[in-house]
Design a protein around this nucleic acid. Structure first.
Lengths: 144, 144
DNA sequence: TATTGTTATACTCTATAACTATA
DNA sequence: TATAGTTATAGAGTATAACAATA
C-alpha cells in the first residue's frame, strides 16, 4: 500500500510482458512436446546439461519440493535421457546427469526454441542492445 | 533450419527474457496463493472480470480443452468468486461471471501483483517508453 | 541428530473420449 | 447432425508427511 497507482505506461509494459510470458511458455511447451517431454522434464534436462548435480539441488533450482524431482528424473530416466550416478563423497547423494542421448536432445531443444530468433529478428542489433540493457536494469543485480 | 546460428547478443536477450518469465510466474503464483487460488484459477477469474463469457470461450482464451474449465470454474464457484448464469439466447450455454466478491478479489490480485511496479520502477519514464516500443515491435501487430 | 532421496497421499491441471441437453 | 457443457479417466506436476540409508 506504499506504492502509488500504476500509471498507464507501466500498465502497458506489464501487459506486454505478460504477452511475452504467455508466448514464451507456449513455445517452450511445444518445443518440449516435439521431443515427447513435458515442460518440467525439459527444464530439468536443460539444467543437468549445464552441470550434473544432486537431486536436492535440482529442486532448489526449480524452486519446488525435492520429492517432485524423484518422479521427473524417473521419467527422464525411462526415456533414456538422464541417469543417476553415485556421489563418491557422500553415499546419500545421487547425482543426476544427462546421458549422451539426453545431451543431444537438450541441444536440439535449445535450437528448436525459435522464440530465440523469430520475434527478436524484428529488431536491429542496436535495438536488441537497448532491450538487453533495459532488461538487465529491470532485473537488477540480484544474482540469486 | 533456415535460420542462422543465434548470436551472443540475441542469446543474452533470450536468457534475460527467460529470467523475466520465471520471475513473472513466481510472483503471479504467489499473488494467487495469497488469495487461496491457483495460477489457473486466478487467470480465469481475471479473464471473467474483463467480461463474463461462455465456458467455451474461457477455454479458447486459456488455450486448453473446454473440459478443464468445468473443474476450474467449479472450484472458483466453491470459493464464492464466480457463478454460472444461463444465456438467454442459447440454453446450452452457461455464462461464467465473477460475483461481487470475485471482482473484489480480482482487483486485489491485480494490485498485489507488484511485478507491475517494483522492477519497472528502476526505469525512468523515457526508458519505459523505449521498452514498451521495443516489446511492441518484438511482438508484432497481432492484436489477438 | 541431521540430511538425502524416496515413498505415500492428496490436490490440481491437462488431454481424450463418451455422454446430455440443447440447437 | 452439430454444438455447449459435463463426466470419466489417465498422466503429470505440486506440496506435505513419513521413511530408509547415510552422515
Amino acid at each position: 500500500m506504499a506504492t502509488p497507482r500504476t500509471d498507464p505506461l507501466t500498465a502497458e509494459v506489464v501487459e506486454l510482458i505478460g504477452t511475452v510470458v504467455a508466448r514464451y511458455h507456449t513455445e517452450y511447451e511445444q518445443a518440449a512436446a516435439k521431443h515427447s517431454l513435458t515442460g518440467a522434464q525439459a527444464r530439468v534436462l536443460g539444467l543437468l546439461t549445464l552441470e550434473p548435480m544432486p537431486m536436492r539441488r535440482v529442486a532448489q533450482q526449480l524452486k519446488c519440493e525435492p520429492s517432485n524431482i524423484t518422479g521427473i528424473v524417473d521419467r527422464l530416466e525411462a526415456h533414456g535421457l538422464v541417469e543417476r550416478r553415485p556421489d563418491p563423497n557422500d553415499r546419500r547423494v545421487k547425482l543426476a546427469a544427462p546421458t549422451e542421448e539426453g545431451a543431444e536432445t537438450a541441444r536440439k531443444l535449445r535450437e528448436s526454441l525459435d522464440f530465440a530468433r523469430e520475434p527478436l529478428a524484428e529488431l536491429s542489433e542496436e535495438e536488441r542492445t537497448v532491450l538487453r540493457d533495459l532488461l538487465r536494469r529491470m532485473l537488477g543485480e540480484r544474482t540469486s
